[in-house]
Amino acid sequence: MNLKLKIWRQKDANDKGSMVDYDIQNVSEHMSFLEMLDVLNEELIEKGVDPVAFDHDCREGICGMCSLYINGEAHGPDRRVTTCQLHMRKFKDGDTIYIEPFRANAFPVVKDLVVDRSAFDRIQHAGGYISVNTSGNTQDANAIPIPKDNADLAFDAATCIGCGACVASCKNSSAMLYVSAKVSQFALLPQGQVEAKDRVLNMVNKMDEEGFGNCTNTGACEVQCPKGISLDNISRMNREFLSANIKKG
């Protein structure tokens, strides 16, 4: 199929940037979206044009590095997939495809479609861990049984890949889904209880500091999240936040 691409080009963080049009021919429906961009880049290089910079690494939907906003949706029109798992069979011959970076002031553009998501890391520094030493002198792994349901819910929350699609698709650029996934994972496990109160307060504070917006429960994040992280996690975090405040007095 033949496609018209409208891609955000921006030389560096200080450049103003704009949408630029490209045509691409003979795209196979079995290609992944990023493979389509690879082909485009090969053509651009041949023509002496700077190729389009975009982030990607694992290309199997787990590292969270890829990050495009495609036709108004984070990771494109397919559900429960990352951009690298999106395939061209989701598009038709003659389609125009808008490709933009994930946008939020907390995610400044570095170049073209590459954004800086280090704010996510900094939120984790504020409390996304359990304070155990890594010495191995811990108790036996089976000493505390954990109900399967809780273990499963904790796992589901822990599958967040930190891609930022939630922020990109939230009209408020809120990072609630991402933060709540980590808070939930630990809140659901006995190991995480000890520091639960400080964790939620510190992580929420940091999230605000980084300039993410406020959640108004629109729920777009859950729909666009490639890992299907549930809104229940946001609810749980709100609850944890309330009870942390009440308990701390």
Partner: peptide
């Protein structure tokens, strides 16, 4: 506040698919 959290907006928006 929320409007300020994204000063450059998307060129193409399609919000009704998800909210």
């Amino acid at each position: 506040k929320n409007r300020k959290a994204r000063s450059t907006d998307y060129a193409y928006k399609n919000p009704s698919t998800s909210s």
